[in-house]
C-alpha cells in the first residue's frame, strides 16, 4: 500500500486556502456589485487576465474582472479545495499518480488552440483544468503537518 492512500486532506490549513480562494473570487465578481471600485479591481487583476469584455461573463450588464477561462480556473480551484477532502479515495489515486493532473490540462490547451471556441467551452475547460490542481496544495499541507508520516524513503 502506498502512503498516499492513507493521506488525510482535512488539514485546518485548507480553510485558510479556501478563504484565499473566496477573496480572489470576490475580486473577480466585484465589478458588477461595487461600481465605484470596479476599475481598481480590474487594474489589480489586469496582469493575470486580458479581461476582454466580449470574452468575459456579464452580471447586470457589467463584465466580471476575469475572462471566461480564468473564471473557470478560479472557480474550479476553489471547488477543488472544498471538495477533495471529501473524496479521499479519488484523491489518493490522483496523489499517487500525480502526472494525471497534466491530462486534465489537455482540454484547456485544445480549446485554446482551436479558433472557434465558445464561452461555455472556455469556462468548462478552465474548471476541468483547475479542479485536480487544487489537490496538490492540500497534499502539501498534509506533508507539512505530518512530515514523519509522509516522509519519503531516501535511496
Amino acid at each position: 500500500m502506498i502512503e498516499t492512500e492513507s493521506t488525510d486532506l482535512r488539514s485546518p490549513w485548507r480553510w485558510c486556502l479556501f478563504l484565499g480562494c473566496v477573496c480572489w473570487l470576490a475580486l473577480v465578481f466585484a465589478p458588477p456589485f461595487a461600481a465605484p471600485y470596479a476599475e481598481v479591481v480590474r487594474w489589480l487583476l489586469h496582469t493575470v487576465c486580458h479581461q476582454i469584455p466580449e470574452r468575459s461573463f456579464h452580471l447586470f450588464g457589467e463584465p466580471l474582472a476575469a475572462c471566461h477561462r480564468c473564471t473557470g480556473l478560479y472557480l474550479g480551484f476553489a471547488l477543488g479545495v472544498l471538495v477533495w477532502p471529501w473524496l479521499p479515495r479519488l484523491a489518493a489515486r490522483l496523489a499517487g499518480n500525480p502526472r494525471w493532473v497534466a491530462v486534465f490540462l489537455i482540454p484547456i490547451a485544445v480549446d485554446w488552440a482551436i479558433v472557434v471556441n465558445t464561452p461555455a467551452s472556455r469556462f468548462v475547460t478552465g474548471l476541468i483544468a483547475a479542479f485536480p490542481v487544487a489537490l496538490l496544495p492540500l497534499v502539501a499541507f498534509t506533508q507539512r503537518l505530518n512530515p514523519i508520516h509522509t516522509r519519503n524513503k531516501k535511496e
Binding site: 498516499t4 500525480p98 497534499v139 502539501a140 507539512r144 512530515p147 519519503n152
Partner: peptide
C-alpha cells in the same frame, strides 16, 4: 532520487 511520494511541500 525516486521517491514514494511527490515532495509537494
Amino acid at each position: 532520487p525516486a521517491q514514494a511520494q511527490a515532495p509537494y511541500r
